[in-house]
């Protein structure tokens, strides 16, 4: 008699299929995370000339990343942990990291879809057009910056066990990020707040994205913003992994 354990590649493919199906059937959540940035993009059509196309795109993408990391990822993780979905998978001959990698890969795919939709709607509705290189580096930067918000979502799920509390906390943090971030970056909350927002997770991601959408105009400020983005990501992901528990007990 022989024991065979499934190849990791096959396990990962199976998990990805299930996680994709779960995401696809969870239309309400999918619509929420994809529609929020699109609605803001369309409603800002009249502001493109005033703010500049790069500022509009980078702000809207930052809001989209916040939606995915806080409203989508963290809530699904909290719900599935509470139901025992992870424990059921962990008793199977599956390396634990494949469970998390599958979940994160689906979110990265969603982030890529969100940014492509923003580019398409920005072009079709707001008549925003940037260089081909800008679209490519913008997409790549979005994926890098996406880890920051996935890390923040992971940290919240790590620190809070109850899925209802995770839900209300992420809504609160999301609302604070969007309102303080959007109004703060335009100086509506005063100069001090503008400075604070500039170095907040919202501000550094928005700045790094703005630089990536115009790669030929990349400056030291953009480099600092990118480094700060990576720094925040490392802290959030590190603490998120440290405090995360696979079950609620």
């Amino acid at each position: 008699m022989e024991t065979r354990i499934p190849a990791t590649k096959n396990v990962l493919t199976t998990l990805l299929q299930a996680d994709f199906t779960t995401l696809w059937r969870n239309r309400r959540s999918l619509r929420l995370v994809l529609l929020v940035p699109i609605i803001i993009l369309i409603s800002w059509k009249g502001l493109v000339d005033k703010l500049g196309p790069v500022m509009v795109l980078s702000s809207v993408i930052t809001i989209g990343l916040t939606s995915i990391g806080l409203m989508g990822y963290s809530n699904t993780m909290a719900r599935d942990r509470d139901r025992g979905v992870f424990q059921r998978l962990r008793v199977a001959p599956v390396p634990t990291w494949t469970i998390m990698l599958s979940r994160l890969s689906i979110q990265i795919g969603l982030i890529a879809l969100m940014v492509l939709l923003v580019f398409i709607v920005g072009f079709a509705v707001d008549k925003i057009s940037i260089s081909a290189l800008g679209y490519i580096t913008g997409l790549l930067m979005t994926i890098v910056a996406g880890w920051l918000y996935l890390g923040l979502g992971q940290l919240i799920v790590g620190l809070i066990k109850n899925p209802d509390t995770v839900n209300s906390t992420t809504r609160l943090v999301y609302f604070a990020f969007i309102m303080v971030g959007m109004f703060g970056q335009f100086g509506a909350l005063g100069e001090t707040m503008k400075e604070v927002v500039q170095w907040s997770p919202y501000g550094v991601v928005q700045k790094a994205l703005a630089g990536s959408l115009q790669p030929l105009l990349w400056t030291n400020d953009h480099t600092m913003a990118l480094l700060a983005t990576i720094g925040y990501t490392l802290v959030f992901v590190g603490l998120g992994i440290k405090y995360f528990k696979w079950d609620n007990k």
């Binding site: 096959n10 199976t14 299930a18 779960t22 059921r88 199977a92």
Partner: peptide
């Protein structure tokens, strides 16, 4: 790989159908 487990609590994603769940667990057990 040599054990099958039935946990006490419900433990499947609510979006998946029974066929999806069977395929998922068949896949993770090879």
């Amino acid at each position: 790989a040599n054990m099958g487990v039935q946990l006490q609590a419900t433990s499947f994603q609510p979006e998946l159908t029974i066929a999806d769940i069977l395929k998922l667990y068949a896949g993770v057990y090879g």
